[in-house]
Design a protein around this nucleic acid. Structure first.
Lengths: 308, 308
DNA sequence: TCAAGGGCATAAGTCAAGTCTATGACGTCA
DNA sequence: TGACGTCATAGACTTGACTTATGCCCTTGA
């Protein structure tokens, strides 16, 4: 887990995708602003490092081999993530330029917004986004106070003075260590709300939208008082680490745990008869419709989840 | 879309995560096998490039700032994807070393297996995986013929002579261009099976497991003959590109479209009363249980989706 | 049949980037 | 107060990748 090696530089893979799309090394080189020999050398280097023949070269151009296509698909995933990282970082710049101030709650800022920003930057080039994060109350305050032109919240209620449109849904999911008893029950033995309430969890601090949503949902279904957390940590990452180490179960957004579930470091446990879905919303000041860049960003966010 | 810029080298971000985990630049430098000044320089460079203060330095060590934590989260996603790329590439090596021959169908090879391999390599270091891909029939043949010690298939049926265990489920999803009429119906106007059958799609060639599953599901629900595809292409990527360009709708695995849905380049459309889920399975020759590395890989795959 | 053009590979020189060692400044702890 | 930890700076070095120039191969069209 500490370090990656062969793939730390994604540049050659980016080039590989261009070659695949354009059909020749020279064209890809032009697109990347390098000379044709440099492109040839980079791809050749990639093939030497990986030990896989990626391109089928010919005087008519170059095409991916079967294995090359597989590598290209994997690389695309990594490059998309890198593009989201790039877009996210750019949004943290505090430039004095033309900028669109955006406020977002943590789950959205971490898992959705960067992808929206990637599309946003291609749609309206030249507008810098300035992102601030906080819990839903803080986001609402920022939008109401005018320091953010557009906000994204994940709470159940829309604060007074704001108008909201749904942009998606997410679901809170109970995760446990793979060896945890809850993970080893043979289906369909779901956990009951009472069991969940009686269990000490790894939890966020007070004020977290995720934690509030869980408490509200549980109180609606069981009279049992909620057990105190085993430990309170400050980040989603820390929660996942703790769960993966077997400290205790936790409840997190499906957006936050999707990758970890796929990797198998933690396991999801269904909960019986507990509605843990919640709506993600874009908000603006009532009476002050989105305009310009803000409208574009809202459209991208809305378009990404029309089911919401 | 052609190229990324500032984040093509993930090395500094990898280092940043180590610093965050270990609490000091020097410790992170040791973990990465570089000198402390080199680590200091790399992080400083990162901060200059990004324009964001990532670390709070002190004589007691270094901690992430709030913005740094956000960057670290985004970076972790990218690094995970890079690790999967790395693991995937390694599995394409055709070394003569101790190796575990694995056969997998395309969807699994593309979207799940690399993540399993990341964990596999940490669990059983020193065993090289040799991956071959194909449709489910080919995978079954490889396992039956002994050229693969373990196989992953996505078809509905388990071929004779093989024993299977579920490792997960996926769902076929209808995707359309965001401006397509199906995407603009206000909920909950799902598409009917008859409509879907009457529509020309962007499709894989014959023999694709995805295509077969769709045809089977549709035939069970409507007598209408299936419309011929608008175009047949050879890769999942090509399908998504075509849909994003508005050529026609398509049907793909949820695993394949998750990212594109999040980014909003395509839109999912629900289908009324059509069961499009299918089980993903790990298979071995009947009577020849998994042993050693194969058993480990099977356990990782199974552990990643206990609900399957 | 032959020239033109596009495609890829090789060679040699140039340049930039990152790294290392050595050293200094600051804070904590025994 | 001295030893040990942290991070930052300075200067020399080495490595690596790029560019330009050139050659070979194949297809195309006159």
């Amino acid at each position: 887990m500490p370090l990656t090696s062969r793939v730390s530089d994604l540049g050659p893979f980016d080039l590989l995708l261009s070659v695949a799309r354009l059909g020749s090394l020279g064209a890809a080189a032009r697109e990347h602003g390098i000379s044709q020999p440099a492109a040839s050398s980079r791809i050749r280097y990639l093939e030497r490092r990986t030990g896989v023949t990626l391109l089928e070269r010919s005087p008519q151009g170059s095409r991916l081999t079967a294995q090359g296509a597989l590598v290209a698909d994997w690389a695309r995933t990594a490059l998309d993530a890198a593009a989201a990282l790039e877009a996210g970082i750019t949004s943290l710049h505090l430039t004095a330029e033309a900028r669109l101030p955006v406020a977002a709650s943590m789950t959205i800022a971490e898992y959705l917004l960067p992808h929206w920003l990637v599309r946003f930057h291609t749609a309206v080039a030249g507008t810098a986004v300035a992102l601030t994060t906080g819990n839903s109350d803080e986001v609402a305050a920022a939008v109401l106070g005018g320091s953010a032109a557009i906000g994204f919240v994940e709470g159940p209620a829309v604060p007074r003075g704001l108008t909201a449109h749904p942009v998606g849904r997410d679901e809170l999911i109970v995760i446990v260590h793979p060896e945890h008893p809850w993970a080893r029950r043979r289906p369909p033995a779901a956990v009951t709300p009472a069991e969940l309430a009686a269990t000490s969890l790894v939890s966020r601090e007070h004020g977290s939208g995720t934690r509030l949503s869980l408490e509200r949902a549980l109180r609606a279904r069981t009279a049992r008082p909620l057990a105190a957390p085993v430990i309170e940590v400050s980040s989603t990452t820390a929660i996942k680490t703790a769960v993966a180490e077997g400290v205790a179960p936790a409840v997190l957004s499906s957006l936050a745990v999707a990758h970890d579930l796929a990797a198998g470091t933690v396991v999801a446990v269904p909960v019986e008869g507990l509605d843990l879905t919640r709506t993600l919303r874009v908000v603006h000041r009532t009476g002050q419709e989105f305009a310009g860049a803000a409208r574009e960003l809202a459209a991208i966010a809305r378009g990404s989840a029309p089911a919401g």
